[in-house]
Every structure is written in structure tokens, then in C-alpha cells.
Design a protein around this nucleic acid. Structure first.
Length: 457
RNA sequence: UCCCCAGUAGCUCAGUUGGCAGAGCAGAUGGCUGUUAACCAUCGAGUCCGCGGUUCGAGUCCGUGCUGGGGAGCCA
């Protein structure tokens, strides 16, 4: 199959041996997304069969190759008998190549069809479990390795690609250095109850990273502006539409930056991502039936409110939430539904936030932190803020958490050698993609989702 | 961890008051020269999730376990 990929990527000018008449014409293997460039030419297309129909002496194949779909048409008499007679054998997802003239055809899905003269079968598929009719989510998740072949799943994962590409380009263009954070770590950075633990040779335990942030802080002290993009792991027993046990984050960290600066950075990054998705993924958003107008509204400035103001807002909405408590999913939905653009909520109570958050020097009961809630009820997509840069205060905060202090010697050390104000945030890729695509659940936004009760396939 | 719902053909589901196990799709066979989730005809397909109980009789009622889905809390 590796050979096939090469053939599809490189257009091969095939010269038939002399003396074979019509077969001397050039033969090109093309991808379906490039059919417009080959109208009227004799070409070869490799792909998988998604569907077939027949009506007596005319037979239709719908092929997909990962770049699109095309109808291949077989006429008794015009198509070679050997190719025509292969039709009954073809099952859904069988792999094959077809060769023939490419032409415009309004009756064909996609507007083009290939009039097949020759056909080659790579493999006849067994009865394919995923039929064109509806399936339950449990069944589809069990067949995730095959479900990826559906147009809807491909559309979502292409949007994911664009989200990551846009975010990385945004930071690259602003002079950030990509600094990969470790996956295996000696300790927690959020809390010990949600760590995946594994053996690390004799007598040592390692933990799967919950966040690259602490390492990004070290990186910011070296490079000034850094970011990481990678998987993170939380052993939370969450069973909701917005949780995975393995999820990806993009985490920038900036030296000599304060809360306001990273709030502006987060806003600019989100706008860049939304613009990139709107620019490059119109076809995918259409397949997903996304209301594009809702995304076109996403522009500066985003709404900015304090935690105090959010509490007042929730009380006005009839919710009884005391000051000092973190918002639940329901509260977030109420707030984010209120706005047509993302809203940044800053200065949460210190008690609800992680140890590394810096307290507001003017009000020690609140932290210099920020969450960004996406509109349409999508809720929190970003969490971040200014980090505690005082060694002694940080040490006290770590002791208060009950986390093993010796694991954080290196982290505290960052504050002993030229400590500076610094800040950063983390963007949850899957929640961002779910918002862009208008999905109910994040499980479709990652190729192989890991959930509390699902580790397969 | 807690609350709610579901489990019947490969898939999606129906199954009445407890009384012979059903449909559509998928699969197989045949027909049709422009199909669009094509259509028409025919055929095959079942540990009714497991265990226990009530009953002359259980897919249906009761108990229990397992699996899946939805929600809460926690978080990105």
C-alpha cells in the first residue's frame, strides 16, 4: 500500500510499450480533488468503493480516495468486458483503481465522472459493518478505526488540523519558540487525584503529564516566548460531553508578561484560528451543517468581565451561587449563551485556583487568572493567568496543597535565578474543535478518543 | 462517585393485557442503459445481554450482575 501512496502523489507519465495503439496515450494517476484539471483526459484514480448502483447495462461506482468522491461509470460495450464483469464482486470499501476518460457530468455527485475502460482490484472487502444507514454512537465508537472513513469524521478532523496549524502559525509568527514538554513527569501540577501513574524502572513512579505549563515557565525564562502543543492526561472520572482522559493543549508562556497581556494574546490567537478555519474549511463546515454566521461574528473585542461581575450576572439570572465558589457547567452555559462572542472572566477566588497562580497584589482573595468561555454554550476553552514569581510565597502555596515539595525544587529554583513576572495559558484543542464544528461531544474531535470507559480501539 | 435510560437479526429499531420472533437497511440470487441512501422480486439470517425467581406459559413481570448511552460533580 505504501507503493500506492507514492503513485497517487507523483503524477506518472506512463508510456505503453510500442505497438499497442491507443494505449500509447499518456496515463495519469490523479487524486479526486484535482479532477477539474484533467477534464477530457484519460486518467487513473485509486480509491475505495463507498457505494454502488446499477441499472441493467449501466453501472455506477462511487469512489473515495481521501481527497473527495467521484462517480465511476461502466457501460456494457464501452467498458472492457473484464472490468464490467468485476462489478458484482465489488463490496463496500473494496479497494480498486479505475482508468478512463474524465468528463464533466451534472448528474454525477461532485459534477464529474470517469468513464471506466479498465479496472483493477486491490482487495475485495468483507461485509463492511458501517452501512449508509444510521448507527448508534456505541457501535460507531467500537468501530472508530473504520468510522474515520466517513465524510463527517474526515471533515471534523480536517478542521482539527486547521485549528492546530493556525494556532502554531500564530505563535511562530510572533517569535515564539516551540518547546516540547515531557509526557512522563515526576509529579502533579494540578492535583494528585487525577494522575495516571506508571512504573518507572525500579522503585520509581512516573506520572503522565497533566499540563506542560511548569516546563513552559522554565522555557520562557530561557527563550522569552515559548509554546508547546501536545497530549495531556487526566484520570478524572468525568462522564460528560466535554471531557477526555487524553486531550491536547496548546500552551504559550511569556516572560515579562502580566495578566492583561496574555488576555490580549488569547483573544488574538482565537481570532486567528477562527479566521483560518473559515478561510480553509468551508467545505468541511458545510458537511457538518455548521452555522457559519455564528463563527463570522467572532472578532475583537471579546467581552471581558471579572469573576465578581459574573457572580452578579448569575444572580440576576436567578442562580444562587455564593461568592468564592467555582462555576459549574450549567453556570458556564448561562454565561456563554449570554454573549455572541467569547467572554474572558478574570480574577477568580484564589481558593478555587491552582497553586501557581499569582494573587492580585491589590486584592489577595483573588488570583490573576483568566478563563475564556466560548459562545453557544461551549464553555471553557482556555484557562491561564499570571504565575506566582515569588519563591517564598510559591513554596508556602505548594506546602498547602500537600503535593511532595521535593518534586518542585527545580520549579522553585526558577524564582531564585532572575525571577520575572510571567504569564501564559492553555487552549483545549478538542473543545476548540467542537466549537468550530458545532458538535455535541468532544469525542469526535480526536482520532482515537480516550474516555473513562473506553480505551479501544 | 452519584442519578436516569437502554440492551431483541451484522446495523437501527418495533413487539399490544404474559400466549407461534417482526420490519427497514446490510448480505445472497435474479431483473432493469443515467443511477443519486436508486428501484422491483425472491432468499438466508436470533443464546430476545448473563444468572436467579414468579407463572401452565416470560422478549414482556420481579431481583441481581454486566455492558452501552445521557446527566451531575471536577476540569481544558
Amino acid at each position: 500500500m505504501g507503493f500506492l501512496i507514492v503513485v497517487r502523489r507523483i503524477e506518472i507519465d506512463y508510456k505503453a510499450p510500442a505497438g499497442e495503439g491507443d494505449e500509447k496515450m499518456a496515463l495519469k494517476t490523479i487524486s479526486i480533488d484535482s479532477v477539474r484539471d484533467y477534464e477530457g483526459e484519460r486518467v487513473t484514480i485509486c480509491g475505495w468503493l463507498t457505494h454502488k448502483r446499477s441499472s441493467g447495462r449501466i453501472r455506477f461506482l462511487i469512489l473515495r480516495d481521501g481527497t473527495g468522491i467521484i462517480q465511476a461509470t461502466l457501460f456494457k460495450g464501452e467498458t472492457s468486458d473484464s472490468a464490467f464483469d468485476l462489478y458484482p464482486e465489488l463490496t463496500q470499501e473494496s479497494s480498486l483503481s479505475v482508468t478512463g476518460e474524465l468528463r464533466k457530468e451534472d448528474r454525477a455527485p461532485g459534477g464529474y465522472e470517469i468513464l471506466v475502460s479498465e479496472m483493477e482490484i486491490f482487495h475485495i472487502a468483507e461485509t463492511y459493518p458501517i452501512s449508509p444507514k444510521e448507527h448508534g454512537i456505541g457501535f460507531l465508537m467500537d468501530h472508530r478505526h473504520l468510522w474515520l472513513r466517513s465524510s463527517r469524521q474526515q471533515a471534523i478532523l480536517r478542521v482539527r488540523h486547521s485549528v492546530i496549524k493556525a494556532a502554531r502559525r500564530f505563535f511562530d509568527d510572533q517569535g515564539f519558540t516551540l518547546l516540547d514538554a515531557p509526557i512522563l513527569t515526576p509529579s502533579s501540577c494540578e492535583g494528585t487525584t487525577t494522575l495516571f501513574e506508571t512504573d518507572y524502572f525500579e522503585d520509581t513512579k512516573a506520572f503522565l503529564s497533566q499540563s506542560g505549563q511548569l516546563y513552559m515557565e522554565a522555557g520562557a525564562m530561557a527563550f522569552g516566548k515559548v509554546y508547546c502543543c501536545g497530549p495531556t492526561f487526566r484520570a478524572e472520572k468525568s462522564k460528560t460531553r466535554r471531557h477526555l482522559t487524553e486531550f491536547w493543549m496548546i500552551e504559550p508562556e511569556v516572560a515579562f508578561a502580566d495578566l492583561k497581556m496574555v488576555m490580549d494574546l488569547a483573544e488574538a490567537m482565537i481570532i486567528t484560528i477562527v479566521q483560518e478555519v473559515l478561510k480553509t474549511r468551508q467545505a468541511e463546515l458545510h458537511i457538518l451543517e455548521r452555522d457559519i454566521a455564528r463563527l463570522e461574528q467572532i472578532r475583537a473585542p471579546f467581552y471581558v468581565i471579572s469573576y465578581d461581575e459574573a457572580i452578579e450576572f448569575l444572580k440576576d439570572a436567578g442562580e444562587s451561587i455564593p461568592w468564592g465558589e467555582d462555576f459549574g457547567g450549567g453556570h458556564e452555559t448561562i454565561i456563554s449563551n449570554r454573549f455572541d462572542r467569547p467572554v474572558l472572566i478574570h480574577r477568580y477566588p484564589t481558593e478555587t485556583k491552582a497553586f501557581y497562580m499569582k494573587n492580585d497584589p491589590d486584592r489577595s482573595e483573588v488570583a490573576l487568572c483568566v478563563d475564556m468561555l466560548a459562545p453557544e454554550g461551549y464553555g471553557e476553552i482556555i484557562g491561564g493567568g499570571q504565575r506566582e514569581d515569588d519563591s517564598e510565597i510559591l513554596k508556602t502555596k505548594i506546602e498547602k496543597t500537600g503535593l511532595p515539595p521535593e518534586s518542585f525544587d527545580w520549579y522553585l529554583g526558577l524564582r531564585r535565578y532572575g525571577s520575572v513576572p510571567h504569564a501564559g495559558f492553555g487552549l483545549g484543542i478538542e473543545r476548540m474543535v467542537a466549537w468550530m464544528c458545532g458538535l455535541e461531544h468532544v469525542r469526535e474531535t480526536i482520532p482515537f478518543p480516550r474516555l473513562i470507559d473506553r480505551l479501544y480501539p
